[in-house]
Design a protein around this nucleic acid. Structure first.
Lengths: 194, 194
DNA sequence: ATTATCTATAGATCTATAGATAATGC
DNA sequence: ATTATCTATAGATCTATAGATAATGC
């Protein structure tokens, strides 16, 4: 029944990866420790040798989701010819992202739940927020560093809110309108950047 | 033990009002039917003569939260001297709203949970979304009705996302920066409205 | 007579732990 | 010998229902 150190480390990785997906898909209360372990092919009882509590897994899965996102956004920006910022905005506000919250932005998938989590988890979230803002600042338009940072924050807020509103509605037309309008506002603000 | 029709109707109102507050404060899984009933001074078992299920109460409490919000925003707009739109934006992105999710905007408090709810509840949410957008369109700047509607959608998205990000962080300085930057972007877009 | 509320409980689910088992790694 | 995983379960919690109780309202 015991496995090697390497296999055990792999198991831990798999649990965190499954959690990062499922929590974004269903919420932190939406999947149990037992179900996550079953998904990875292990049994419930083994969980607590990897993590001291479900909250510890939540904290680790939140960090995982953020680093996955930054890697993905970096790739999208690098693949873009010309407008790196526009490429990330366009990707973020796409139907593809809308339909895949399990692999998408943490803030859009779990924002309102994150703000209720205990202090240590919120600090991990805050660190992730800083990383995202820094990344966006690096590709945002604007004459000064301060203006680019402001543009990064405003864009991040608009995108998170736009995706949240789009996912809330059951009206497909309204959904498209929201995604399109927010994307357009962020694009035209680029040319209007003072 | 039985009460009059009028008192029973009052009880139902109180349950919905308590739910609208507590759900925004703690999430839909954050307070039980038994605790809600206790808060109103009734016992658990009586719940199911008022509502067929917890989901029915959730749908009603969502509608309640939206209508409370529109009444409040209308009051804020009416009290404003001059810039009605700016007054609502300023109120939305205030620390006061940040600290009181239990009486604040539904989308900021429960957005990511709402999008996972069953279809009938999502349709109630969609109707609320339309009402909010229509209200904001009525006070938004812009030369044409279409531009005012677009401005309403973009402003709503930015405000929801800004408040979500502000509540996610445990860093007070970053929180203030987010609220200020989003508010400023929405104010300056007013003058830049084409 | 009807029914709003109460008491009590069924049935499901979830986190966390205890002790057994069998494979690793010194 | 140590320990990663498994089986089994304790203890808590939650939704929903059943049947009793007592006040309303015809």
């Amino acid at each position: 029944m015991k496995v090697s150190k390497e296999v055990m480390a792999e198991h831990k990785e798999q649990i965190i990866a499954a959690a990062a997906r499922r929590y974004r898909e269903r919420g932190f209360d939406g999947i149990s420790v037992a179900d996550l372990m079953q998904e990875v092919g292990l049994t419930h009882g083994g969980f607590y040798r990897h993590f001291s509590s479900k909250d510890e897994l939540i904290a680790l899965s939140v960090l995982r989701a953020v680093s996955e996102t930054i890697i993905e956004w970096r790739k999208i920006a690098d693949d873009a010819k010309g407008d790196r910022f526009g490429a990330v905005v366009h990707y973020y506000l796409s139907l593809r992202h809308h339909d895949h919250r399990e692999t998408g932005c943490l803030a859009a998938a779990l924002g309102c739940e994150l703000s209720r989590l205990p202090s240590p988890v919120k600090e991990a979230v805050t660190e992730g927020e800083r990383q995202i803002i820094d990344f966006l600042r690096g590709i945002a338009p604007g004459k000064t560093k301060a203006l680019r940072r402001k543009q990064a924050i405003v864009a991040f807020a608009s995108m998170v809110g736009g995706m949240t509103l789009a996912r809330m509605t059951s009206d497909g037309e309204l959904r498209q309108e929201i995604l399109k309008d927010v994307a357009h506002a962020l694009s035209s603000s680029v040319s209007a950047t003072v």
